[in-house]
Design a binder for these strands. Sequence first.
RNA 1: GUGGGUGUAGCUCAGCUGGUAGAGCACCGGGUUGUGAUCCCGGUUGUCGCGGGUUCGAGCCCCGUCACUCACCCCA
Length: 412
Amino acid sequence: MAFQAPKGTYDILPGTPFLAARDGLLEPARLAGYDYMEPPVFEDTELFARGVGASTDVVTKEMYTFSDRGGRSLTLRPEGTAGVVRAVLEHGLHHGQLPVKLRYAGPMFRAERPQKGRFRQFQQSGIEAIGLTDPALDAEVVALAWQGYQRLGLREVRLLLTSLGDPACRPAYREELTAFLTGLDLDEATHERARLNPLRVLDDKRPEVQAQLVAAPLIIDRLCADCKAHHDAVVAALDILDVPFEPAPRLVRGLDYYMRTTFEFVHDGLGAQSALGGGGRYDGLSESIGGPPLPGIGWALGIERTLLALEAEGVEVVGETGLAVFVVPLGTAAKAWAVGFVGQLRTRGVATDLAYGERGLKGAMKAADRSGARWAVVVGDRDLDADVAQLKDLTNGEQTAVPLSDLLEQLA
RNA sequence: GUGGGUGUAGCUCAGCUGGUAGAGCACCGGGUUGUGAUCCCGGUUGUCGCGGGUUCGAGCCCCGUCACUCACCCCA
């Protein structure tokens, strides 16, 4: 074979519940008033550099950046939030009712080494609630993701929740943590990471590192009064919403814009990449990309990982509705009739296909069976002479002759 | 970017100590001149990833290379 899909990409093939997962995860949000929108797949490189954070791995080494013919530097979006907020600002959506509630879905791009549950082009479904700082809104956003997973039938998703503080309390904490980390016996790369973003060292997986971190100061214990009150209110609201969560004081996210409420959905059946999705509050993002102060909170859920979780739990997701009727014509006159009949059924919204090609009746019936259709309509020239068609129920094999004049009505 | 594993039919894989390329599934046809899902019979499908080396002989051994994959890192 001459070509194959580029490294880290894959084909969404028939038979996978991709659409059911992508859209199903957003269904609770749709019912909560989150309208669909989608920003472009590429944006000005600077939008991501400033929005996501220049010190993040995503920006420093994982972006697909290119110059177009006009010499502009563009980047394939590595995440969705920056583009959504940019669109809100550009179109002034925040000048109307607040919060602006949006949902979106589509491909994201990061130039990482692929592995299980990690691709260079991957799909996310996400929502954003922009314009308000209200802990009840935080709880709604978190709950909508939780409900999305529940809706798909996942039962082993765990919600990790914490608060990362805000500009009032984080700087002092950051200093304290930096001082603590400086005293530790860490390798060069980790010290460098500590210098860039000390928070990120906290979720280092290595046991020898974790062992040194048991006494590390945690932001959740150092929250300012406002952040603490906000977090307490979020926790109380989640309780009311009956969304179970695990306090995760060491939870860190890789995008710089997160503050206060921060959360992640994890699953133990996925391999090393256990994060199904995540999100948080990003009250400073708008300003960092040149907009007015505009708080916001949202999440993005990975579709590929959701699919892996479904597989791990053995959940059968009902995919696309298949065919209802499969028509099997025998002979030229019957074929001509069938082509017209199939058209009529489709016009009435009945999913219908027919046996093309020169297969024998047996082969055509086999095709009818595999099509998943409930009904087979078998028509030969001698049926047409009698003005009937054979209507067969493929679930039980029962077949009756139905007058052609009644057939459409029976199936539609 | 750094490691490990794996590359044989459309798919999942077997292939002994180096000796003519296999199975199951799938697909096609027949058993039934007009009936599927079961059953029976038959059939199609290969650059053994690629290149080189050793050998009388390489799917198997050696070297290189590419791809895939898992993990580190990071994250969805």
